[in-house]
């Protein structure tokens, strides 16, 4: 099997997993928010309401697709596609497990695009592209609320991207590589970056919330002021794509944070204790379970924070980004650089 075919197969699997996870997250968000707010939540469709996402998608597909008169139609059409495409394409550099040793001695890496020299930068680059989906949606709708949402989003993303990049730089200094697989390898045996980079992790976490437009940073779609923000004029599956992109973004952001700070699929002691050899199928399954576990914790945090904290005001958002996170990120780089220089 050629490597091209193999990559395509892995890509197809990753895409399907991400879409299923996104749908599951919609359900979980509703159930967890209900739990936090002492409600019951969706429980009618299927056992425990588990088929609710399916019903939602069916509803979105059969809804009328309304495009506003005077909207810029090509951009109105392409904006949700950009959002979802960017959110999903980041997946290809994420390594949810190490590799499978085949009979002929070759290593079958689990990541879609393993050992990419610039894996982390790829994530940062594509997450900065994601803003176009929102900005174009806001502009093309020909609606002032949409436009305001789009403008807010672009300002917010530019501001928090910097803090995110700076936090990532410090983590890369500790790990010594931009390659996702090597970042995880450098943290093996429980030497996770979060122990050495607690401040960096916090900055990256806050910036991730802002980059994914999640509460308390969901100003682009703040409903009391902007109706629905950039997706005010979207209906049917186009709206559904934005919705899906938000959850896909949450998933990829959690996966990147797991890789960068929580040791990825690494779990100290346990694999050797259980006698799982590197490259065997049980080991890969174990690693997948560890990775999924860590990602789930972060995803729960995303949902928990949304239903706990109130939304920021716009000036507070900008102050936090430029006056708190950016200087902290720079200081973190200087301190990390000094320590890395003198200790190693």
């Amino acid at each position: 099997m050629s490597s091209l075919v193999l990559t395509l197969i892995k890509g197809a699997i990753a895409l399907n997993v991400a879409l299923v996870v996104a749908a599951a997250l919609v359900y979980l968000e509703r159930r967890i928010s209900a739990w936090i707010q002492y409600r019951i939540g969706p429980n009618r469709v299927g056992p425990f309401g588990l088929l609710q996402p399916l019903a939602d998608v069916l509803k979105l597909y059969t809804k009328e697709d309304i495009v506003p008169y005077n909207a810029s139609k090509p951009f109105h059409r392409i904006a949700p596609i950009i959002s979802i495409a960017v959110a999903l394409s980041v997946l290809c550099v994420i390594a949810p497990a190490s590799y499978l040793l085949l009979d002929d001695g070759t290593k079958l890496f689990i990541a879609v695009a393993p050992n990419v020299n610039v894996g982390l930068l790829f994530y940062l680059a594509l997450s900065s592209i994601g803003v176009y989906g929102i900005v174009l949606a806001g502009w093309s709708s020909n609606n002032k609320y949409s436009l305001l949402g789009g403008l807010r989003s672009s300002a917010q993303m530019i501001s928090y991207e910097l803090a995110m990049g700076l936090a990532a730089v410090a983590a890369v200094m500790v790990s010594g590589s931009l390659d996702m697989n090597q970042i995880i390898a450098s943290q093996s045996g429980g030497r996770w970056n979060i122990w050495f980079q607690p401040l960096g992790f916090l900055i990256f976490l806050v910036a991730s919330f802002a980059e994914t437009n999640r509460a308390p940073f969901d100003l682009p779609e703040a409903e009391p002021e902007l109706v629905g923000g950039y997706h005010t004029e979207y209906s049917g599956m186009k709206f559904g794509l934005f919705y899906l992109a938000e959850y896909a973004n949450m998933f990829t952001a959690s996966a990147v944070m797991t890789t960068l700070y929580l040791g990825g699929y690494d779990m100290p002691f346990l694999p050797t204790l259980l006698g799982l050899q590197e490259g065997t199928l049980p080991r890969v399954l174990f690693e997948l379970a560890v990775f999924v576990g860590k990602v789930s914790v972060l995803l729960f945090l995303f949902i928990w924070v949304r239903w706990t904290l109130p939304r920021f005001r716009y000036d507070q958002l900008m102050n936090l980004g430029w006056r708190v996170l950016l200087p902290l990120g720079l200081a973190n780089i200087v301190i990390t650089g000094a320590i890395v220089f003198f200790v190693r």
Partner: peptide, 24 residues
């Protein structure tokens, strides 16, 4: 690879976002 990613990160991801922002 590095140059390709920087091209997207810097030009498409930062500078053009500002340009689009100002146009809007």
């Amino acid at each position: 690879q590095f140059l390709a990613i920087l091209q997207i990160l810097v030009y498409a991801g930062a500078i053009m976002v500002l340009v689009v922002f100002v146009i809007m």
